[in-house]
């Protein structure tokens, strides 16, 4: 199986977010960056499929050179190859821009492939757009928010999370699948893996080398402003014994909140 897994470097989920002075971007200084957690499930799933069925796993990241760190992590986990599509543009929040570049990469460089794995969304931009857009641009089937994946001969079955239930989806290969938490438990890198990943050459491409013009990679999203939502104020604090506290809660729900 020839598997590509698409990954992104994002701020840690424990990060406190600050806005740059111009009010149009998140301040990156002082943030700790990680491999986006859903992408980590995607990498793990790719490795498990390769271990079961053979083949190669290529990790691909789009972003500035700092994104090399998540590619090295994927290599250390066990990916065979890694590719950086170097893009110095600021975070555009335009999923279609990203998808256009990834689709161009797949057409120009990937040859034939069986499976394209993504995280269900990048933590931070929270768009959840790119997997479906790549599928749409390449005319491939898509299954998003997947908690279980089985790949057979030319086809697959996946469980996908929807409201209050799960859809069992059958699809043909090649396909796009995006990973949800619960799909697997990602492995830790081994020391040997980390050492090998350090030595591995990571090819760097640019959107221009993929045949894309400045117009092709222009963002459709104009960021008007980014702001921190107003802080919620602490309300009433109750320290009475349980029975009285329960009465206070119900009185509050009835008279103030009016929800019961």
């Amino acid at each position: 199986m020839n598997i590509f897994v698409f990954i992104k470097r994002v701020p840690d989920t424990e990060s406190r977010i600050r806005i740059r002075d111009d009010g149009r971007a998140v301040a990156e200084d002082g943030l700790n960056f990680i491999l986006s957690p859903y992408d980590e499930y995607a990498v793990e799933e790719a490795l498990r499929l390769k271990e079961a069925k053979g083949g190669t796993v290529t990790a691909v990241a789009l972003g500035p050179e700092t994104a090399l760190v998540v590619l090295r992590k994927s290599l250390a986990m066990g990916a065979d190859e890694a590719v950086l599509i170097k893009d110095e543009a600021a975070e555009s929040y335009d999923g279609l821009r990203t998808a256009t570049i990834l689709a161009a990469y797949l057409k120009a460089k990937a040859g034939s492939f069986d499976l394209l794995l993504f995280g269900k969304q990048a933590v931070g931009s929270d768009n959840a757009q790119v997997p479906s857009m790549v599928a749409g641009l390449l005319g491939l089937p898509q299954v998003n928010v997947v908690t279980k994946l089985e790949i057979g001969d030319g086809a697959g079955t996946a469980l996908r999370e929807i409201e209050g239930s799960r859809e069992k989806v059958v699809f043909s290969l090649p396909a796009v699948v995006s990973a949800q938490k619960g799909l697997n438990e990602p492995r830790y890198e081994t020391l040997r893996g980390i050492m090998a990943a350090k030595k591995k050459a990571i090819p760097v491409l640019t959107p221009a080398e993929l045949g894309l013009s400045a117009e092709d990679t222009a963002s459709r999203v104009e960021v008007v402003r980014i702001e921190i939502p107003p802080a919620r104020k602490a309300g009433t604090l109750v320290t009475e014994p349980a029975a009285e506290a329960a009465r206070r809660i119900v009185a509050f729900l009835r008279n103030d909140a009016k929800v019961i």
């Binding site: 602490a234 349980a242 119900v250």
Partner: peptide
Amino acid sequence: LKVADLGVVGDLFEVLPPLKDEIKKA
């Protein structure tokens, strides 16, 4: 408790049973 409109400092295992009763009553 710093963001709650109503915060209760207490043991949830003690608060839940009377809370259920009070809600049923209400």
